[in-house]
Design a protein around this nucleic acid. Structure first.
Length: 896
RNA sequence: GGGCGAAUAGCUCAGCUGGGAGAGCGCCUCCCUUACAAGGAGGAUGUCGGGGGUUCAAAUCCCUCUUCGCCCACCA
């Protein structure tokens, strides 16, 4: 066999694109696997086509990719559905900004041209997003890709709209809604973001009509007094009892409005009297409903004062109007005082403009019946959140849900499937276009100009992407999906609504597990954003460090439940790991020259082999439990530690004994054995380090069949994930693990002495080991593995015996169950060494006294679990032994 | 006003059902030992936010306080 050469310098660019293409061309992203196993399905949270992917997507998709690859390797038919979201307002805003920069506008372009233009922008961004997902290595099935505005999804949206209407769960009406004057559209309650603002509260006096005097009211929005239609007081407020039923004459407008009573009013706040503006405040709207008050809309769609206000104020925007109103009130003596006041102000989640409560005719979904089902499903345990505490957020929202305003005065989106006959006033809600129906010939039907909230298509995503409303094979096989991976900021917008839609239209929850990721933040804990300029582009990371580094680092840092702080150089964690993997492999493959690889079943395992398999078994266990619990941080850590701290630091080092042997058979054995372990390690790491593991795996000699008998597929991506093998932790394995621990302890002890006294590795010396009487098997182990120990510690000789006399002229290292005498007296400073021993004695004494204190505590003996007590006894015995030995060693050294 | 989360080494954070404080980065010393200086070996560094409690035993469970962060909410 000839050596396989890897480039001296690791560069992910050499193979990532090639590997990705290979996977894709060979169909490895498509659901295959064992038919008798449950499919594992994830639908991607579709990125918005407003731009390119940011680090939040990097995190989210990395985690999904790890889950998908892990399950794929377990042999489950695995499907990851990719796709993008048309993102109604967000995309429309992007395009409008472009148009503005070009000196035109959507109005100038007209609806048809505008939508065409938006499709172009969508295509551009979609291409970028796709390329980004490929670059980061996302193993999604591109044959299943969907877009929230494609024809199939449009059918789904129409079907859902019409059937909800038929079930009386969708209605149309004139209500107070959230209006974004800048986007020119209604918003749902969830699309309004509240933030604290430093404002003022104006105290005004309204003159009474039926008698002398006035009543004082307070407001944070004085301009709305132009639309006041009542003043409300609490029904049991004695201050105002005799004013109930009386009227006030509003300043500026001269309108006479009643004083009404409503228990909503807080007697303690301000004067206990509230001005009521039903058309511009949610509470006032409700009071207005109860008292049948007039609703006077004072704002235009652009949030300027309209013709319902006195002429002097018309055309002013809210800010200017407020100033003018306050000035006039003050001049006319109606302003009592102005105080500072903090309050919450609603802003549009897309353009940050202050949102105005505004009366208009919109479409709504009646949410209560849907929410009840979603709550019931959760209570029955049909869905599980990881981490669990998000359940509170979910249930609280559903319990307090309000109807969902779904119509948007936009052009980019699913057109509402409703037509109006302006002549007859008839409204047609239809799955098909009624204008194409011959029965309607001659009628003038006008389709509702509005589109649906973008989330109205997103909430169907888990089944619409699988072909619904058609009863497709995909739908049959892959619904419900398995896991959803998303960030907590869209639990309301998306997660809860998908559950509602899934239950309503599929009769089943859309997914079982909901893994809520944290948000990616910069190292100072700030959210990454364009305006702060602290964003990190996943493509830049891939370019600089490679896709594996990107994915691995994010997984390693993504602790369940908390936000993920990332700095650009955080990714060194992953790239150093990749480099380590590369170099370790390069070393192993360069030693293949002239070797004949031996089939695994013809190799007899030695202690060190049993040890590494024991460790591998433990790593597999940790990875499995991590993956089952969506702890990708733990899983990736286990992979990292196994590969670096066990395989590289120790196993490859001891393998050099075989690789550098004079004996050809030993060399063959050594080269083969280490490759079998490497092969399995590559499968272990593949979900986390996908490209590099595949690249290396492809270069492994084909003779290296998986040692666990799982067969050799054409790519590691479809290899079988390592399993826990009972045979790897049986008695011989355990005793090998114990023995090797002692070897490690000895080696580390020798290294410490070397380091403390600056003895170079080239300077070898003899070591004599004396094993505790209680550990005869340890002596055997040291004898069997003496050559490894000599290699690791750079010793000239290693003897094992019981001769106390051999202490003389040496320096000792005391370990658990043994002491080792290093013949380095001439190389060390005896005084220093005595100090070291004193320190070590003090440490042992401290530990021992702690243990003894515990053991002499009756409560401990009586109440602690027996195995804990037993372990404590064993520890104390070992420490006592060590203490005795260390003292003897010190005495010997001091004497000489 | 409710609810949730966080406080552990200089920095960023692990530490899961309570039983001798950890990682990465940074720092110090030595080593370019023929896989790897993006490396190896060794080392220093912690009243586990404060105070109470439960327990034989608390970073871990309970209460409370302090400080941050987030979400929800119709007090003008």
């Amino acid at each position: 066999m000839k050596a396989v050469e890897l480039n001296k310098v690791f560069d992910a660019k050499d193979f990532e694109d090639r590997i990705y293409t290979m996977w894709k061309d060979r169909g490895h992203f498509e659901p295959r696997g064992d038919d008798d196993k449950d499919p594992f399905v994830i639908v991607i949270p579709p990125p918005n086509v407003t731009g390119v992917l940011h680090m939040g997507h990097g995190l989210n998709n990395s985690l999904q990719d790890i889950l998908i690859r892990y399950r794929r390797m377990q042999g489950r038919p695995t499907l990851w559905v990719p796709g993008t979201d048309h993102a109604g307002i967000a995309t429309q805003n992007v395009v409008e900004r472009k148009l503005l920069a070009e000196g035109t506008s959507r109005e100038e372009l007209g609806r048809e041209k505008f939508v065409e233009r938006t499709w172009q922008v969508k295509e551009d961004h979609h291409a970028t997003i796709t390329r980004q997902l490929e670059k980061i290595g996302a193993s999604c099935d591109w044959k299943h890709e969907r877009f929230t505005l494609d024809a199939g999804l449009n059918d789904a949206v129409k079907e859902v709209f019409v059937s909800l209407y038929e079930r009386d769960l969708i209605y149309r009406g004139e209500y107070l809604i959230n209006w974004c004057p800048s986007c020119g559209t209604a918003l749902s309650d969830d699309e309004v973001e509240h933030s604290e603002a430093q404002g003022h509260i104006w105290h005004l006096r309204y003159p009474l009509v039926e008698r002398e005097g006035w009543i004082e009211v307070a407001t944070t929005r004085p301009e709305t007094m132009l639309g006041d239609t009542a003043v409300a007081v609490h029904p049991e407020d004695e201050r105002y009892t005799d004013l109930v039923g009386a009227h006030v004459k509003l300043p500026l407008t001269g309108r006479v409005v009643p004083i009404v009573t409503d228990s909503y009013v807080d007697r303690e706040f301000g004067s206990g009297a509230v001005k009521i503006t039903p058309a511009h405040d949610q509470n006032d709207w409700e009071i207005g409903e109860r008292h049948d008050l007039e609703r006077i809309n004072i704002l235009t769609a652009e949030a300027t004062l309209n013709d319902n206000v006195p002429e002097a104020f018309r055309g002013l925007d809210v800010k200017a109007g407020r100033k003018a109103v306050v000035a006039d009130l003050e001049e006319q003596g109606y302003l009592v005082r102005i105080a500072d006041h903090h309050h919450q102000v609603g802003h549009c989640y897309r353009c940050n403009t202050v949102v105005e409560p505004w009366v208009s005719t919109q479409w709504f979904v009646r949410m209560k019946p849907l929410a009840d089902k979603a709550l019931a499903a959760w209570r029955k345990g049909e869905i599980r959140f990881y981490p669990k505490h998000w359940e509170n957020t979910y249930s609280h929202w559903l319990e307090n849900i309000r109807d969902w305003c779904i119509s948007r005065q936009l052009w980019w989106g699913h057109r509402i499937p409703v037509w109006y006959d302006d002549d007859t006033g008839e409204m047609i809600v239809s799955r098909t276009d009624p204008t194409e129906d011959p029965a309607n010939a001659g009628r003038t039907l006008r389709q509702d100009p509005d589109v649906l909230d973008t989330w109205f298509s997103s909430w169907l995503w888990p089944f619409s992407t699988l072909g619904w409303p058609e009863q497709t094979a995909d739908l049959e096989r892959f619904y419900p999906t398995t896991s959803l991976v998303t960030a907590y900021d869209i639990i309301f917008f998306w997660v809860a609504r998908m559950i509602m839609a899934g239950l309503e239209f599929m009769g089943e929850v859309p997914f079982r597990d909901i893994y809520i990721t944290g948000l990616v933040r910069d190292i100072q804990g700030r959210k990454m954003s364009k305006s702060l300029g602290n964003g990190i582009d996943p493509l830049d990371v891939v370019d600089e460090y490679g896709a594996d580094s990107h994915k691995f680092t994010l997984a390693y840092l993504s602790v369940q439940g908390s936000d993920v702080p990332i700095a650009p150089d955080s990714f060194q964690l992953g790239s150093k790991f990749a480099n380590k993997i590369w170099n370790a492999t390069r070393f192993l493959l360069m030693n293949l020259d002239g070797r004949t690889l031996i089939p695994f079943d013809r190799i007899e395992l030695r202690d060190v082999d049993r040890w590494i398999y024991y460790r591998l078994n433990q790593a597999v266990k940790t990875v499995n439990s991590g993956m089952e619990n969506y702890r990708m941080d733990e899983a990736s850590r286990a992979v990292y530690e196994f590969f670096w701290n066990e395989f590289c630091d120790w196993y490859i080092e001891v393998s050099k004994l075989g690789l550098y042997s004079e004996d050809e058979a030993e060399k063959d054995r050594g080269a083969s054995m280490v490759l079998y372990v490497l092969e399995e390690a590559l499968r272990l790491m593949h979900p986390f380090m996908s490209f590099i593991s595949e690249e290396i795996w492809q270069k492994l000699p084909k003779e290296i069949e998986p040692a666990d008998g799982t067969g050799r597929p054409d790519a590691v991506i479809v290899g079988r994930y390592p399993q826990v093998h009972p045979g790897r932790e049986d008695e011989p394995a355990k005793s090998a693990a114990d023995g090797f621990s002692a070897v490690q302890e000895l080696v580390r002890g020798v290294r410490t002495i070397r380091s403390e006294f600056t003895i170079p590795p080239t300077k070898t010396f003899d070591v004599y080991v004396r094993v505790a009487d209680a550990r005869p098997e340890l002596a055997e182990f040291f004898r069997r593995n003496g050559a490894y120990t000599r290699l690791l510690a750079h010793l000239s000789s290693l003897d094992i015996g019981e001769d106390d006399g051999r202490r003389a002229g040496s320096v000792a290292v005391v370990g658990s169950g043994f002491e080792a005498y290093l013949y380095v007296r001439e190389l060390i400073d005896v005084e220093e060494q005595l100090k070291r021993l004193d320190k070590s004695i003090a440490k042992i004494e401290k530990g021992l006294s702690q243990a003894e204190r515990k053991l002499s505590n009756e409560g401990f003996i009586a109440k602690a679990k027996p195995d804990v007590v037993e372990a404590e006894r064993a520890k104390a015995a070992d420490l006592r032994d060590q203490l005795e030995r260390t003292r003897a060693v010190r005495a010997e050294l001091a004497r000489s």
